[in-house]
Design a protein around this nucleic acid. Structure first.
Lengths: 205, 205
DNA sequence: AAATAGTTTAACTATTTAGTTACATTTGAC
DNA sequence: GTCAAATGTAACTAAATAGTTAAACTATTT
C-alpha cells in the first residue's frame, strides 16, 4: 500500500515521478493528460502504466512524496532550534524555502484546498497536519513562557502558509504583468516580511 | 466583447450562470463537464451553447462577474470609512464577508493563482488588482499619519486574502476530518483573529 | 390567426483521453 | 551466453466530453 518511499524506483520511474509532479502542479489532476506526460519525460505511455497502476495512483505517489519532503525539512529544522522565538522563525523560514524549492507543493496545496481535497491523498494531507501540530506546539510554548500573546493557531498557520503560498505561486503571474515600477519582493524579502509581520503580531506588547 | 453586465440575461441564462459559477469553483475549468452542468441546472446542453459561445466564454462571464461583485462590495464599504484604522478593518471584514458569501471566489482565486492564471479572464484579474491598490492606499495613509509601521503591501495583502481564502475554502475539509476536540473558528471568529493579528502586525509600537 | 424571432430539445458528430495489448528491444544479474 | 526484468513502440479499445444540428416549441409582433 505504501509504495511511496520504500521501494527503489529505477531511472525511468524517477523521471516519470519528477515530470508528473511538475505537470500535476502546473495543470492539476484533471488538466494533466497522460500522453502529454509521456511526451514530456520522453517515455512511452505504456511505461508509465507499467510502473504505476493508473493516474490516481501516480498522483498519490507524487503528492505524498512532495508533501513529506517539505514537512520533514521544516520539522527537522524546527526541532534543532531551541527557543520558541527561534522555532517560530525557523518554521517560517524553512516552510518558505521548502515551498520555494518545491513550488509544486504550494500550487497543489492551493488547488486541493480549493477542491475540498477531492483528489488529495490522505498521506499528503497528514503532512499538512503535522505542520499545523508543529506550529501549535511552538505557539503554546511561546505563550506559556509569556513571550507570545494568545492567538488562534489555525489562523496563524493560515497566515504563514497562505501568504507564502500566494506569494510563491503568484510569482509567474506578477512577473508576466509587470505593471508596477516597484520591485517585486524576492523570496528572501518575502520571508523577511512575513517573519516580521507574524513576529509583531504575536509579540506580547 | 464585454457582454458581462451590459446585456440582460433571461431566466435560463441566469440559471446557467449561477450553476456554472458553482461548478467551476467546485471542480475547476478542466474538471467541469458541460453535460453535468446542463443536468445540474436542469437545462439542455444546447441551451448553454445557445446563450454562451463555448466553455471558455462561459467561464469568463462567470468569473468576471464573481470577482467584480466582491471587489465592488469591499471597495464601496472601504470608501465609506474615514480613518485609516477603520478602512483597514473594513477591508478585512468586507473581504471576509464577501468571500464567505461567494465561496466560489476564493476557491477560484486559489486555483487560478496555482495555475499561473492560465484560464483567468483578464477582467477578473483586474478586480484583484483593484483590491490590492485599495489596500496599498490604506497602508500608505496609515503610515503617513504615523499610525502604521512601514510594511510590504503585497505581503500584507497576501496575508489577509491568503489566510481568509485558506480558512474559507478549507472549511469543508476541516469539518470532514474533525479530529480535534477543539472548536473550529467560525467566520466571525476568523475575521476577528485576522483583524487582530494584522492590526498588531501593523501598529506602530 | 398567421408570421416571425427567440428559445429549448433530443439525437448526433468529432475529438480527446485513460488505459490496454502484443511484441520488439534492451539491460543487468547470474 | 542466458534468462528475466525492464523499457520502447505503435496500434488499439472504450469511454468521456465539447460542440453541432435540425426539428419542435413558445412567445411576440403584425
Amino acid at each position: 500500500m505504501n509504495a511511496i518511499t520504500e521501494k527503489k524506483y529505477g531511472k525511468t520511474a524517477l523521471k516519470i515521478l519528477h515530470c508528473a509532479t511538475d505537470l500535476f502542479a502546473e495543470k492539476g489532476f484533471d488538466g494533466t493528460i497522460m500522453d502529454e506526460l509521456a511526451d514530456r519525460c520522453g517515455v512511452n505511455k505504456a511505461s508509465i502504466y507499467y510502473h504505476f497502476n493508473d493516474k490516481a495512483m501516480l498522483y498519490e505517489v507524487c503528492m505524498t512524496h512532495l508533501f513529506k519532503q517539505v514537512a520533514d525539512q521544516v520539522i527537522s529544522q524546527v526541532d534543532k532550534a531551541d527557543s520558541a522565538e527561534q522555532k517560530l522563525k525557523t518554521f517560517i523560514y524553512e516552510f518558505a524555502k521548502g515551498a520555494y524549492q518545491h513550488k509544486q507543493m504550494p500550487a497543489t496545496l492551493m488547488r486541493e484546498i480549493a477542491a475540498a481535497g477531492k483528489n488529495m491523498p490522505i498521506p499528503a494531507r497528514q503532512q499538512m497536519q503535522r505542520l499545523l501540530q508543529t506550529l501549535k506546539a511552538i505557539l503554546k510554548q511561546g505563550e506559556q513562557l509569556g513571550l507570545f500573546r494568545t492567538v488562534d493557531p489555525l489562523m496563524t498557520h493560515f497566515m504563514i502558509i497562505g501568504s507564502l503560498s500566494f506569494h510563491i505561486t503568484s510569482e509567474p503571474m506578477r512577473l508576466a504583468i509587470q505593471t508596477e515600477t516597484k520591485m517585486d519582493p524576492t523570496l528572501d524579502e518575502a520571508i523577511g516580511h512575513v517573519s516580521e509581520l507574524i513576529y509583531h503580531a504575536l509579540l506580547n506588547n
